[in-house]
Design a binder for these strands. Structure first.
Length: 572
RNA sequence: GGGGGAGUAGCUCAAUGGUAGAGCAACGGCCUUUUAAGCCGCAGGUUCAGGGUUCGAGUCCCUGCUCCCCUACCA
């Protein structure tokens, strides 16, 4: 099978060889890699370790660029010129009496990957890249650089990492440049890099070999760094509001808190089948029962479902619970949080939080977010009330939506309402305006407290909202249900009310009901899809672009399956 | 799940069924202010894999693999 990538099949061949013999046969190594290995050997012959060593007091390329001193550079150039002039005018003047060269130029020491090079013979131009600067120029002159450094420059390949040290100057064309006095290797790139201007284009190769994608397409690194900054700012915001971060089990005997298919695994020591969590919710609520007042968890969730541009099998959600709050306190918290994150993302990207580009839209995070109730939005879209079941059934039939499940039993009214809502009403939400949709039908939210005063309405409501931005559902919040009897009843209804395949993955969590019997304070709860939020604030089209290593189908079957077999057998 | 598209040199891409090419990278040479440096020279291929049609297949047909787009499903 062909692998369209820089590494090509060589790596695979190598790894196969490693199993049998640690020696690499030259015949198996690509000619371009062999050339680079020869250059590495030549660097060793100069007395360098091509893989470098610890280096303190390094500046980032952005810091180095900012350190340029225009006055010092001019003074240096003028004094050098004056000395040359004097030498020309009076060639007999002793060296010591010529005008002195003044050099107050700042000296910088920088590291980076070589992304471009122009060899003019006795003067070599290099462009370095790091996470702060896409292209910082180094000049390596035979006259001004130490001898080994100049020889090293002759042996460099694009992609190598080097350390340069020297004064900052401006070239004739006005570019701030480190005029190297020393040059050292820091690491060798044995793999031929992608095309120097276009970077790595093939999406498959970009996701599989992020380490190449990241330096050849600096936007990738910027997006991943933005993700880290947003996560960090999110924690600061919540901690400022007196929330504490907690960690709850990923391995669970029954995956709850959401309706999704879990991944399963096996624990040898206890001979126990376990699933990976689909949501942390039920454990976080147990912490509220125990007495933690405000908790949050940045939860990696695992759902054994499909992949597309907004779904990865493992994804990160933020869940927040606040004792004595409700869904309105969660709304204020969420709006404040997202506005703060948007401000940060905007300033990182040099744009305005009032007009953050996402796809074809400019999203305004500065104005207060829109609020509309589920019922209002439904009526606006359909022209009749969601309690009008005859019209709901007619509308479903007219749109060809199924009104009976596969075994012939009619689908509950409220699910028909929701199909219309998701199919029609959600499209009315302006993608450019973050919008809270409030008060969902109670039947759709079993873990939510019913909205007081609507119990006898045609469609009883629950204290729940959903936030939509850029056409995506970013997350829901609830006034949590804390009556154990109602909770037990809802679990039962939920198990009975869905078709067989789904009910396999829902369970009655007796210990959770027991926790509620102990008494959970009234509380607001929130879940935010962090990956989608980073997509929005970083203007990235797919969830893969905000994950460092998105799920990819392996090019050849991995060892995971056989390892599982081995562990089973070794256990007995 | 359904529909459409793609896979060719390390990378980015060409090639009516008729000798597989270019740019960049690499390699050899020249060059001390270049910016995608320039000039001269040289080399580089299991056309994703496996079948089939044909005098002849990168091209047409079938099967498989991987990716992309649209669509559907999915608290």
């Amino acid at each position: 099978m062909r692998v369209r990538s820089c590494v090509s099949e060589q790596t695979n061949i190598e790894s196969e060889r490693v199993d049998e013999s640690p020696e690499l046969s030259e015949a198996d190594i690509h000619r371009l890699e062999l050339q680079r290995r020869e250059n590495r050997d030549a660097v060793r012959m100069l007395g360098f370790n091509p893989y470098g060593q610890r280096s303190d007091a390094l500046m980032t390329l952005a810091q180095a660029h900012a350190a340029f001193d225009e006055g010092a550079d001019l003074e240096n150039k003028e004094s050098t010129q004056a000395r040359k002039q004097a030498k020309r005018d009076t060639p007999d003047t002793p060296e010591s009496e010529l005008p002195a060269i003044v050099d107050q130029r700042p000296i910088v020491r920088v590291a980076g990957r070589v992304v471009l090079s122009r060899d003019n013979g006795k003067l070599i131009w290099l462009n370095l890249r790091d996470h702060t600067n896409d292209s910082f120029q180094i000049a390596v002159s035979k006259r001004d650089c130490d001898e080994n450094g100049f020889k090293l420059a002759k042996l460099l390949d694009n992609g190598d990492i080097i350390i340069a040290q020297g004064p900052l100057t401006k070239t004739n064309t006005g570019e701030v440049t480190c005029w190297a006095s020393t040059l050292e290797p820091a690491s060798k790139c044995l793999v031929p890099p992608p095309e120097k201007r276009l970077g790595l284009q093939d999406p498959d190769a970009r996701y599989r070999q992020r380490y190449i994608d990241m330096w050849s397409n600096p936007d990738t690194t910027r997006t991943l760094l933005l993700r880290s900054k947003l996560m960090s700012a999110m924690r600061r915001y919540l901690e400022t509001n007196e929330f504490v971060e907690v960690e709850t089990p990923v391995l669970q005997t029954q995956a709850g808190g959401a309706a999704a298919k879990p991944f399963f695994t096996h624990m040898n020591a206890l001979h126990l089948d376990l699933s990976l969590r689909i949501a942390p919710e039920l454990y976080l609520k147990r912490l509220l029962v125990g007495g933690m007042p405000r908790v949050f968890e940045v939860s990696r969730n695992f759902r054994n479902e499909g992949l597309d541009k907004s779904h990865n099998p493992e994804f990160t959600s933020l869940e927040v619970y606040q004792a004595f709050g409700n869904y309105e306190t969660m709304l204020m918290l969420t709006e404040g949080l997202i506005q703060e994150l948007a401000q940060l993302a905007a300033s990182e990207q040099g744009i305005s939080a009032a007009a953050m580009p996402f796809g074809e839209w400019l999203i305004d995070y500065e104005k207060p977010f829109e609020q509309i109730t589920y019922a209002e939005l439904f009526e606006k879209a359909m022209g009749f009330s969601m309690g009008d079941m005859d019209k709901v059934r007619d509308a479903c039939a007219a749109r060809g939506l199924k009104t009976k499940s596969e075994d012939g039993t009619p689908i509950a009214d409220i699910f028909l309402v929701n199909e219309l809502f998701e199919g029609v009403a959600e499209d009315l939400i302006d993608p450019a305006r973050p919008t809270f949709v409030l008060d969902y039908p109670a039947s759709l939210s079993p873990l939510t407290r019913p909205k007081a005063g609507t119990e006898s309405d045609p469609v009883p409501l629950a204290e729940r909202w959903d936030l939509f931005i850029g056409g995506m559902e970013i997350g829901p919040a609830y006034t949590e249900l804390n009556d154990p009897d109602v909770q037990a009843q809802k679990f039962k209804e939920q198990l009975a009310g869905v078709d067989d395949e789904e009910s396999t993955f829902r369970s009655f969590d007796e210990d959770f009901v027991n926790a509620l019997k102990v008494g959970m304070p009234p509380a607001g709860g929130l879940g935010l899809g962090m990956d989608r939020l980073v997509m929005l604030l970083g203007n990235q089209r797919t969830i893969r672009d905000v994950l460092p290593f998105p799920m990819m189908k392996p090019l050849r079957p991995g060892p995971a399956a056989t390892q599982e077999d081995e562990s089973e057998s070794s256990d007995h």
